[in-house]
């Protein structure tokens, strides 16, 4: 099987995007100062987080697989993360 990039792997999934309400908010300064930013950028299996050109953490919340890993390894106060509301977010068809 050809090696697929994370974007190609995510393309196999069904997502229902909540355009109004992002379910992830990064508190930039504290996230960088505590090392949380680097940690979640590396650990997220969907590559939701990345360094933006201006040195902040960019958040592609539409790709989130809702595992909760980022929150589990984030220092207190660096990240607001909750499940998307209602029917939004990833929809596993296999699981």
């Amino acid at each position: 099987m050809k090696t697929l990039t994370v974007t190609e792997r995510l393309a196999a999934n069904r997502f229902v995007l909540d355009e109004e309400q992002p379910h992830i908010v990064v508190h930039q300064e504290l996230a960088k100062a505590t090392g949380t930013a680097a940690r979640i950028i590396a650990a997220c299996p969907a590559k939701v987080y990345s360094w933006a050109a201006d040195g902040s953490v960019a958040v592609e919340y539409a790709a989130c697989l809702e595992c909760g890993t980022c929150l589990a390894i984030a220092d207190p106060g660096t990240l607001e993360w909750h499940y998307p509301s209602g029917p939004y977010g990833v929809q596993f068809r296999e699981g």
Binding site: M1, R9, C67, F92
Partner: peptide
């Protein structure tokens, strides 16, 4: 073991 297969879902969970 996965040769010739097609990835149909990618997920994560704790």
């Amino acid at each position: 073991l996965i040769e010739g297969g097609r990835l149909i879902e990618y997920g994560s969970h704790l």
